[in-house]
């Protein structure tokens, strides 16, 4: 398992977008022929993928807002981004 450099700026891959769905009252990831329905912690990370936040900046933002150890938030965010990268949803 490769580690992700904290300075990497994750971006959604072409044809992928995060959108708020009124009917489900939740954020959804729409990608080519796939829909992902992220849970709340994943949504918090995904909403910070804006082409300017680095992984370090995403983690710093979440640490300010959520009561959880920084190393755990960092590990969770990196794991999610790695998984979505393998699925072609984000580019790192």
């Amino acid at each position: 398992m490769t580690t992700i450099d904290g300075s990497v700026v994750p971006r959604f891959a072409p044809g992928v977008r995060l959108q708020f769905d009124q009917r489900r009252n939740a954020w959804v990831v729409l990608s080519p022929e796939r829909v992902f329905l992220p849970d709340e912690p994943a949504t918090a990370i995904l909403r910070l993928i804006d082409g300017s936040h680095s992984l370090d900046a995403i983690v710093a933002d979440l640490v300010r807002r959520f009561e959880a150890p920084a190393d755990r938030i960092s590990a969770d965010a990196a794991a999610l981004l790695r998984e979505l990268s393998e699925k072609g949803v984000v580019t790192l």
Binding site: Q19, D21, R23, R24, V28, L30, E33, V35
Partner: peptide
């Protein structure tokens, strides 16, 4: 869209 469909193929 009103029913909750997200993707149109």
């Amino acid at each position: 869209a009103a029913l909750g469909v997200l993707q149109l193929h």
